[in-house]
Simulated scan of single mutants.
Amino acid sequence: MFLVALIFASLVAFVYLKVQQSREVEPLVKRSYSLKSSIAIGIFLISFGINSYMSLQSSVAAVVALIFLVIGSINIFFGWKQYRLLKNYSPKETSTETN
């Protein structure tokens, strides 16, 4: 049940961040939303792969889960790495807080 909630929450976060990205004008803030959505889709892929393997438990599901785990891990790793670099580069423009 936890994985289903995580799947749903990560999809909602992905859609929310993509909508925010499309509304934003400044390029660094737009890139910040893009990287956060990449992390959200990575979480979705990992949780979906684990959930599919746990429910089906077949060799085909294991291969699909492994592919999803690899792709999701790559999305999270590179999204987080680039987001940290972007945040250190320009913390003023990447903060999403409004004053």
Rank of each mutant, 00 (worst) to 15 (best):
F2L: 04
F2Y: 03
F2A: 02
A5W: 12
L6D: 11
I7F: 00
A9K: 04
L11P: 04
A13E: 08
V15R: 07
Y16W: 13
Y16E: 09
L17M: 12
L17Q: 08
L17G: 02
K18A: 09
K18N: 15
V19R: 08
Q20I: 03
Q21Y: 04
Q21G: 03
Q21K: 08
S22N: 10
S22R: 12
E24Q: 09
E24K: 02
E26K: 05
L28M: 04
V29N: 01
V29P: 00
K30G: 06
K30H: 09
Y33V: 11
S34F: 09
L35W: 01
I39C: 01
I39V: 07
A40I: 06
G42I: 12
I43P: 00
I43F: 05
I43N: 00
S47T: 13
S47R: 07
S47K: 02
S47A: 14
F48V: 15
I50Q: 00
N51W: 14
N51M: 14
S52L: 14
Y53A: 05
Y53E: 11
L56Q: 14
L56H: 13
S58Y: 04
S59D: 10
V60H: 03
V60R: 06
V60P: 00
A61Y: 15
A62I: 12
A62Y: 14
V63T: 13
A65Y: 03
A65D: 04
A65H: 02
A65M: 06
L66A: 07
I67Y: 12
F68K: 01
V70N: 05
V70C: 08
I71T: 14
I71E: 04
G72C: 09
G72N: 11
G72D: 09
S73D: 06
N75A: 02
N75F: 09
F77Q: 12
K81D: 11
Q82E: 15
Q82G: 08
Q82H: 14
R84V: 15
R84K: 15
R84A: 12
R84Q: 14
R84F: 15
L86D: 03
L86H: 09
N88D: 15
Y89N: 08
S90D: 10
S90T: 12
S90G: 02
P91T: 13
K92W: 06
E93K: 05
T96N: 10
T96V: 12
